[in-house]
Simulated assay, not measured.
Amino acid sequence: MTFGILALVALAGILGPLLGARVSWHVPVVVGELAAGVVFGVTGFGLLDSSDQTFTFLADIGFALTMMVAGSHVPVRDPAVRAAIGKGAVRSVVVGLLSVVAGYGAATAFGTGHAALYAVLIASSSAALILPIVDSLGLGGTSVLQMTAQVAIADTVCIVALPLVIDPDNAPRAGVGALAVAACAVALFFVLRAFHRSGHWRKLHKFSEKRKFALELRINLVILFSLAALASSTHVSIMLAGFAFGLVLAAIGEPRRLAKQLFAITDGFFAPLFFVWLGAAINLRDLVTHPSAIWLGLVLGGATLVVHAAIRALGLPLPLGVLSAAQLGVPVAAVTVGTQLGVMGDGEPAAILLAAMITIGAATLAGAAASKAGLTKPV
């Protein structure tokens, strides 16, 4: 990898903000970044080589940081959300059961043998994608809080389950590794909480701010990369390490200064690089050479919308049910890990991303419908 290629990657990443600049479109920034990767990668001009080891390693850093930020967005400290956990949990379970049926049906129809993977994909929701839509539209009320709890639960469970279902032959080993990462995350929570409560973290913050040392960022990067190293050594995706540490930050309360620093290095460089790399790695020409992949994407996307909309029967307004179907983190993680492990068939990664784009488009329309239906915060 050269500086010229790195400049091209950075330039490609700008397409994300350009597409996301129109607020009324509600287009996630990552859509443009993925599209740029597709144009310059194996599908398009072939200028970006996703197999380059340096490019791949930098993308892995971006993957870990992206999942950490996603985990930090889960509203585990919000009392209103915690009060809605009961109904949110029940609805998550129902969505999960329906997803198992839908996943089995899709895997059987297309003969992929990935019923468990499809079930996790269909059941997943993206807190990092849905919560900004909720905030930007000013959505609120009991139903929105219950949906938020449902999304947080689904996001967490599916992130944990994905490494276990994507490579079933190595599920026991992955399970042990996942438990090791989770145990370390729990230990980190108690250590960091005690450090915060003692006042030492505040003293560190003031000292770092005064001397311009960015110590909070450095320390948290050490922790993140250590968890990623543990995950890699135990054959677990770094996705879980990043998300687990993000949940820890969300639980103890992420300092604003740290949040800004993480935003700068993640959204400013590493996350765009990761999504451009992912787009460059996906061969959308497989959708042409393997037309069944298009149908698979349509089926997975449609099944996701139907399963989440079915929660209308449990009292969740239809627009919020469709909004809760929006997914990106889990499909992206599935494609990333599946591509690295070589366990996906021809066209399958492209089909999974197509399904995710369908849910994002539907969620954008559903969010607008929810706003028009008056599901907003009281003035």
Rank of each mutant, 00 (worst) to 15 (best):
A7H: 10
G13D: 05
L19W: 05
G20V: 03
S24Q: 09
W25A: 04
H26N: 01
P28F: 02
V30W: 00
G32T: 04
E33A: 08
A35N: 02
A36E: 02
G37Q: 12
F40P: 00
G41M: 11
G46T: 05
L48E: 15
M67T: 15
A70Q: 12
A70R: 08
G71M: 11
S72A: 15
H73S: 15
P75R: 13
P79L: 13
A83D: 15
A84D: 14
G96E: 07
Y104S: 08
T108L: 03
F110E: 02
G113M: 02
A115C: 03
A123M: 02
L129I: 06
G141I: 06
T142Y: 01
T148N: 05
A152Q: 02
I153H: 01
A154W: 05
T156R: 00
V160N: 03
A161N: 06
L162V: 00
I166H: 00
A174M: 01
G175P: 01
G177V: 03
F189Q: 05
V191A: 14
S198N: 15
H200S: 15
W201P: 01
L204W: 10
K206N: 10
K206F: 07
E209N: 06
F213N: 10
A214C: 04
E216I: 04
E216W: 01
I223D: 00
T234I: 10
F243D: 02
I252C: 02
G253C: 07
R257E: 15
K260Q: 14
T266Y: 14
F269K: 11
F270R: 11
P272C: 07
P272Q: 09
L273Q: 10
F275E: 03
L278Y: 04
G279S: 12
R285D: 14
R285H: 14
V288E: 10
T289E: 15
S292P: 01
A293G: 07
I294Q: 05
W295M: 07
G301E: 04
T304Q: 09
T304N: 04
V307D: 11
R312K: 07
L314A: 15
L314N: 12
V322W: 03
S324Q: 10
G329W: 06
A334N: 12
G345H: 05
A355G: 12
T359N: 04
I360Q: 09
I360C: 10
G361V: 14
A362P: 01
A363D: 13
A363F: 09
A370P: 14
S371K: 08
L375G: 04
K377V: 06
V379R: 11
